[in-house]
Design a protein around this nucleic acid. Structure first.
Lengths: 231, 231
DNA sequence: TGTTCGTCAAGAGCGGTGCTCTCTTTTTCT
DNA sequence: AGAAAAAGAGAGCACCGCTCTTGACGAACA
């Protein structure tokens, strides 16, 4: 649906230009350094004019967040698409590296998505569809692996307590048709993945882990073994 | 070493009062909302006077960060001290819950320590001793469990690649006298712990996981099994 | 004891921020 | 062509971190 009037077209164009400049500022200064006035200045606009396009700084942030989730989700989707369908361990590792690579390439955007919430900012509900794109990819891998019987009986571990059944039911909308035990093993691996990336990006590994890519790969292989992904 | 002159004593008192008020502001507004002017206002001081005590906002932040690491570290130390020495699984779970409980009780302080780095702020080196207190507790548990042969031969998993040996050597200063494999299993569990807490605190589990304490406990038991901690 | 010197609170001010309100210009629709 | 809607410009408010200068006070020294 292309814009009909000239005004609508220039509005869409300017909106895109604002988010582009804002994303560049975000990449160099971080979320805290994102200034509407600076964006306006760079566009040759007066600061108040920006408010015709984004009613507040938070709304601009929301646009950047949605863009970020989509960019990460797309990177993950493409990474998975390049793998043989039945190499579940390979798909898991590829997805892990896709997340990490994207995060390293866009540290401030990653921080915006998975770091501390911006104070006073409440992510609106319309970020959700974009936010779960990467998770859906992971859920499909788990689900397909389970149905291909590629989840080897993992090490003995306590089963999930019954009180977690209702939570498992919700997660099953993302990892469909798998037993509770698989759900929570997947959830644990998923948080470990982002936990590692966040630790690495936020400096928690400084002066400690130097071979980060190798260590990350190894850690994700441990999580694969925990999930029961063969090999 | 108590302050000698009256001036030094009142200076120490005022410094403490500043950090106390700042910590309260931090708890209610978050790191971004920490304002030197607001702190000064609450003290009945003029804003510029604060700079006699903290040369910049970043220095005040550093003081709060060190305090935060120490508070978390102390909570973890006390939690571990209350456990039977040879119940290694119990000690691990207790430490996990201590971290999570502290984080839930002090969300903004936790975000300051483990969330996105404050833009333009570089944590000085003197935060390090406080920052590793909790890690040292965990390292001691792992090390003692290994030497008590309480780390059951865990599920088959690839051994750490040789290129990680130098990193393992560094981590060994925190988890002493254990083989590389144990090092990286511990590191993975450690990042999974903080990954979970961050996910929970930063809203990633909203509308998904509701029985959070139970789910967390189960996830940490899975990580215990991954490390080979018995039962 | 008196004086000097370092420390500190206070105030004004600089350049920056998000945001609002008003006014004018431009474009679109009837 | 005229009315209505949209957009840009400008001034202004209340805040921020931080700097510089000024004047007062307390502590150490002659």
């Amino acid at each position: 649906m292309t814009a009909r009037t000239a005004r609508e077209r220039v509005r869409a164009e300017l909106t895109r230009e604002i988010t582009d400049i804002a994303r560049r500022h975000l990449a160099t200064e971080g979320a805290g350094g994102l200034s509407l006035r600076a964006v306006a200045r760079e566009m040759g606009m007066v600061s108040s004019a920006i408010y015709r396009y984004f009613p507040s700084r938070d709304d601009l942030l929301t646009a950047l967040i949605i863009d970020g989730y989509n960019a990460l989700g797309e990177a993950v989707e493409q990474a998975d698409a390049g793998c043989p369908r039945d190499d579940f361990l390979g798909r898991w590792l590829t997805v892990c590296h896709a997340v990490r690579d994207w995060a390293l390439a866009h540290p401030h955007e990653y921080a915006l998505l998975y770091g501390s919430p911006v104070p006073g900012y409440q992510a609106p509900q319309d970020t959700v569809p974009a936010a779960v794109r990467d998770t859906i990819v992971f859920g499909r891998i788990m689900s397909e692996a389970h149905h291909a019987s590629a989840l080897a009986p993992a090490q003995p571990a306590p089963p999930p307590p019954p009180s977690l059944q209702s939570d498992a039911a919700i997660v099953r909308s993302i990892i469909p048709d798998v037993p509770d035990d698989v759900i929570f093993r997947g959830l644990t691996a998923w948080t470990a993945l982002y936990g590692w990336v966040s630790f690495e990006l936020f400096g928690q590994f400084n002066n400690t882990i130097e071979e980060r890519r190798t260590a990350f790969d190894h850690s994700m292989r441990l999580m694969a073994a925990m999930m029961g992904l063969a090999q």
